[in-house]
Write a protein that binds this DNA or RNA. Structure first.
Length: 413
RNA sequence: CGGGAUGUGGUGUAACGGCAGCACGCGUCCUUUGGGAGGAUGUAGUUCGAGUUCGAAUCUCGACAUCCCGACCA
């Protein structure tokens, strides 16, 4: 991608009351544009990051047997009345069509759609278990949207729902998802702590994946002995680590990037979702649900990976692997390097702008946070070299022009 | 939802109740060219609605919006 054609522009200044780090950096760097509180447009760079995160998640969901669907945001009122949540869910967006006077919900979660859907296609124990997921926009009428991408009113979420013949099978799959989530967060470049949280009325615990950072709005107590954490919301009722009993926990602020939950029969009951067992008897299907907020994960990566000059993207989610800066008097050499990298299948943002000075290009490159910076300069070209620098390091390496592809491939693998 | 702060060109900011100014951006020209350059010139603005006043960006009331704190967050 040529930066001269990139749709977006970096900014030097932002309103002083925009204080959250992820909002400031992502807005300044032109990854997103705020439309209103808690609602963002994703610009080309931001969407590339979001898509990379989605692909990491999608790959893992397929690996644990998930089948991808795409459910509607616009939901019939009736389904939400059937579970009682039309009245009880505070952050449910509800509205009435001005033309037909029909009431609708804008879904903030999809039990009300997925359960009747599964009922339509599953009727025997032979068809269980089944796991269905989607990556889709959720709407929640947050009383207070805040902290940039961390708490929005419209946001992208991966939601997985699993359906089982009995609780043992749910327990088994719950653990499978847990391990899958560990891999997802690790790949995305954040350290998520498995955290015991409130399970509501259906189970003792749910589990959250919490990334420790001052920017977080949750408070967790981390157990040094077994590397787990407990959300403060349940620590009052049950002091100490639920796993090992350790009473010496460390109090930390954290961002909840994922949550897994045993729903058991709550929604199967509401919709009479049953299956026939081996003896032909009707039994209620046992459910689990598992969420990851993609926007929030993107914001969390920025919160935990930046410096005073800008964002530092992990390679796995970066919008491009390489940022190629042309600052020499020999644009043909830069064009050739661009072509060489592209032909090798390396994703490059090529700063080909002639009118922009070197200093500004460097400052912007640091702000955008692309992992590898390759500079085509007269100084280095004199020895047939280019300058290669990793965003997270201060060291500049000289690499022969014809070897940059191999060099980046080697460091990338 | 309770409390607080703030709304001025595309962005960031100034202006005692009395001519709306500066910087960035964008356009044109000249110079400059390795860490967000300099000069010339052009472009574009007081959130909305009432009220007070000879006169309102400025004071009052209301609406809307944004940010922050708290409550809430399957």
């Amino acid at each position: 991608m040529r930066q001269s054609a990139l749709f977006a522009k970096t900014q030097k200044q932002l309103p002083k009351d925009e204080t959250s780090t992820n909002a400031r950096l992502l807005l300044r760097a032109g990854f997103v544009h705020k439309e209103m509180a808690g609602v963002y447009s994703f610009l080309p760079l931001g969407l590339r990051v979001l898509n990379n995160i989605a692909n990491i998640i999608r790959e893992e969901m397929f690996a644990i047997g998930g089948q991808e669907v795409f459910l509607p945001s616009l939901n019939p009122k009736q389904n939400w009345q059937q579970t009682g949540r039309w009245e009880t869910l505070d952050d449910l967006f509800r509205f009435t069509s001005l033309y037909t006077k029909t009431d609708y919900a804008l879904a903030g979660t999809h039990e009300e759609i997925i359960v009747p859907l599964v009922q339509r296609f599953v009727s025997s124990y032979k068809e269980l278990p089944v796991a269905i997921f989607q990556i889709q926009n959720k709407f929640r009428d947050e009383k207070r949207a805040k902290s940039g991408l961390l708490r929005g009113r419209e946001f992208l979420m991966k939601d997985l729902y699993s359906f089982h013949a009995n609780e043992q099978d749910l327990d088994r799959y719950y653990q499978v998802v847990k391990e899958s989530y560990d891999r997802i967060f690790k790949k995305a470049g954040v350290e998520a702590v498995y955290t015991f949280a409130s399970g509501g009325t259906f189970s003792k615990y749910s589990h959250e994946f919490q990334v420790l950072t001052q920017a977080g709005e949750d408070t967790v107590h981390v157990c040094g002995a077994c590397a787990l954490a407990v959300n403060e919301e349940i620590l009052r009722e049950q002091p100490g680590c639920p796993q090992c009993g350790n009473k010496n926990l460390r109090r930390e602020k954290a961002i909840e990037v994922g949550n897994i939950f045993k729903l058991k029969t709550k929604y199967s009951s509401a919709f009479q979702l049953t299956y026939k067992d081996e003896r032909g008897e009707n039994k209620e299907v046992i459910m689990g649900c598992y969420g990851i907020g993609l926007n929030r994960l993107m914001g969390t990566i920025v919160e935990t990976s930046h410096d005073k000059r800008g964002i530092i993207w992990p390679e796995s989610v970066a919008p491009f692997l390489v940022h190629l800066l042309q600052i020499s008097d020999r644009p043909k050499e830069a064009e050739a390097a661009y072509e060489q990298l592209q032909n090798a299948g390396i994703e490059v943002l090529y700063d080909d702008r002639e009118e922009v000075r070197a200093g500004e290009k460097f400052a912007e490159a640091d702000l955008l946070g692309i992992p590898w910076r390759v500079v085509i300069s007269d100084k280095a070209l004199a020895q047939e070299n280019v300058e290669v620098k990793e965003r997270k390091s201060e060291r500049v390496e000289l690499v022969k022009l014809q070897n940059i592809t191999d060099f980046l491939r080697a460091t990338n693998s």
